[in-house]
Design a protein around this nucleic acid. Sequence first.
DNA 1: GTAATTTCTAAACCTAACTTGAGGTCAAGG
DNA 2: CCTTGACCTCAAGTTAGGTTTAGAAATTAC
Lengths: 155, 155
Amino acid sequence: MTAFSGVSIGYLADRTGLAVSAIRYYEAQGLITPWRNSGGQRRFHRADIRRLSFIMIAQQIGFSLPEIRGFLKDLPGGRTPTPEDWTQISQDFRSHLDQRIETLQKLRDNLDGCIGCGCLSLPKCALYNPKDRAAQKGQGPRYLMGDRAETENDP
Amino acid sequence: MTAFSGVSIGYLADRTGLAVSAIRYYEAQGLITPWRNSGGQRRFHRADIRRLSFIMIAQQIGFSLPEIRGFLKDLPGGRTPTPEDWTQISQDFRSHLDQRIETLQKLRDNLDGCIGCGCLSLPKCALYNPKDRAAQKGQGPRYLMGDRAETENDP
DNA sequence: GTAATTTCTAAACCTAACTTGAGGTCAAGG
DNA sequence: CCTTGACCTCAAGTTAGGTTTAGAAATTAC
C-alpha cells in the first residue's frame, strides 16, 4: 500500500463548487487545516469535502464563519471524522437551527396577528425578542432590536 | 390646529434604537424619504417609526436593503400609511418569510435523516436545493451549492 | 524535456451596511 | 447675545467574506 498523500485544493474546489480562493480564505479563518506537501502545496483529506459542504450549508442558513468555526471545533483535524463525530456536530447544529426556525415562526405568527387585527404595529407586537440575537457582537449590522416599543403618542 | 411639522432624526433614532447615521444611510438607499424644514434639517412622519422597525425586522430575517426597498415600495411616502397599506406589505413579506421557513425546515428534516441513518453526508442528501437561493445575484457568498454531490470515490 | 496547468504568497480590490470625523449650521435656554 | 447640543454634508474608515492580480515555483501532460 502506498502512503496517503491527500488531494489538492483544486480537486476540493471542483468537488464542492467553492472557489479555490474561498478555500484558502477558510483556511486563513481557521475553518479547515490542510498540511503541505514537499513542494509547499496544500493537501487535504478527501473527507474535507464534507467539512466544506457543511460550511456552505451553515452559511446559507445565516451563520457567520466564526460561528461555524465553533460548530466545527469538535471535528478532528488530524484524522477522518467518524460518523459519531458528525452526529455530534449535527446535533449541535440542529439545536441552533431549531432556534432560528422558531424565531421565524414566532415572527410569522405575530405578523399574522398584526394583519388580522389591523393594528399593523410590528414593533408593538414585540416581534423582536432581543434574546434571539446571539449573533450581535459589535460589528456588521449593529443596533438590532432595542427594547423600546413604538407607542405613537406625543412627539 | 397648528401645521404638522414632523419629527427629527434624533427622535426617530431614540424611538427605534437605530443610529442617526443608519437612518441617514437608509435615506441614501431610498428606504425612507424625509422632507426638510426651513433650516435644511430632516423631518419625518411619526409613522416612520413603523417603517424603520419594519426595516430592522426584515433585515434580521436576512433580507438585503434592496429587497426591503422592494417591500416598501408600495408604502406611500407622502402620507401616513393606512392599515390597508401595511396589510398589503405584510402579506408580500409574509410569503417570503414562509419560503424561508420552509427551506430551513426541509434542511432540518434532511439533517435528521442524516443523523438517524448515520450516512452523515449532508451534501449527498441534497440538503441544498439551488432553487431556494433567490438571494444569489453575484455578490456576497458566491458559489452556493453546486449540484455535484460528494461521492467519496477516486481522487 | 518542454509546455501547459496548478498552485503558491502577498497585497490590493470589492460589496454591503454602516460608523467616524472634520468643519460648519440651526435652534433653544439662560 | 452666547453657548450648547442637535443637525448638516462629505469623505474616509470598518467588518465580513471573498476575488483579483502579479510574479514565481511546482506538477502534470505530452
